[in-house]
């Protein structure tokens, strides 16, 4: 970060003309978007349009073939990138929760700050208790993931990610695997986070939720951003036929 002249008034995440192929299949064909600090953006689009691949590139879980992704001015597409340094700044929540099944909810939250950031036990424990209350799971501290419902696991996963104090959070279809009745509790936790000023990039199929919390909505199809805009205009004044078709199917 030494030779980095990034300042908070520049985009926190800056994606420029990103291309990515899996074998012969090009899933990202030149995607460009910016996320400012405190902004919440939602990426929507049909399955296989490259949404998840795009956000997985932001924390270097996937590599990109060309273009540039910068997080706080740090180039993610740099072979000498310190991935661990990047990932301390970027939190991620997955569709399948991916909690560590051999650890309790509280331990899941505390492990990374203790082992990765080497923060003192007492401080981490206090923060973990606060986080678990924040996602409305007070009393579940000592439950193992297997004893929690999908929605509860996903909220622990959010708290686990927040425990690292990230600057930006990535949400990869976090409600797609949930029972309908538990979707809301997870969305509430994310909304709470968004209103608190956390920078969020969400890949989602929850249009109502996107409309409510997003500052900006991007519609992707077949590896490109077809259309984007603030929710107020995006849902009512879509111009591209592909966007219109998608919205008519899903709304």
């Amino acid at each position: 970060m030494s030779d980095n002249d990034w300042t908070p008034d520049q985009p926190l995440v800056s994606i420029r003309d990103v291309h990515k192929s899996f074998g012969n299949l090009e899933v990202l064909k030149g995607v460009t978007l910016d996320v400012m600090k405190g902004e919440v953006i939602c990426i929507i689009g049909p399955s296989g349009s490259g949404k998840s691949t795009l956000i997985r590139c932001v924390n270097a879980l996937n590599t990109i073939d060309s273009g540039s992704i910068k997080v706080e001015g740090q180039e993610v597409h740099d072979p000498n990138l310190d991935k661990l340094d990047l990932r301390k700044k970027v939190g991620m929540v997955f569709q399948q929760y991916n909690l560590f099944p051999h650890k309790t909810a509280l331990e899941n939250i505390m492990m990374a700050p203790l082992k990765v950031l080497k923060q003192p036990q007492a401080e981490v424990e206090e923060r973990a208790h606060k986080l678990i209350k924040r996602v409305n799971l007070g009393g579940k501290e000592n439950a193992y993931p297997g004893e929690l419902s999908g929605g509860q696991q996903q909220r622990v996963a959010i708290a686990r990610s927040l425990a690292m104090n990230p600057d930006v959070m990535l949400f990869d279809e976090v409600t797609a695997a949930l029972d309908p009745e538990t979707v809301n509790e997870v969305l509430l936790a994310i909304k709470d986070l968004a209103q608190d000023g956390m920078t969020c990039i969400l890949v989602t199929h929850e249009m109502g939720f996107a409309r409510e919390v997003a500052d900006h909505i991007y519609f992707t199809d077949r590896g490109v951003i077809v259309e984007h805009g603030p929710p107020a205009t995006f849902f009512t004044e879509a111009k591209d036929p592909r966007t219109k078709e998608f919205l008519s199917q899903i709304l």
């Binding site: 924390n59 879980l61 991935k83 661990l84 340094d85 990932r87 301390k88 970027v90 939190g91 991620m92 997955f94 991916n98 909690l99 560590f100 492990m111 990374a112 082992k115 990765v116 996963a157 686990r160 990610s161 690292m164």
Partner: peptide
């Protein structure tokens, strides 16, 4: 992936 995204080595 979860461990990766939490900056575990």
């Amino acid at each position: 992936e979860a461990a990766d995204s939490l900056a575990y080595s």
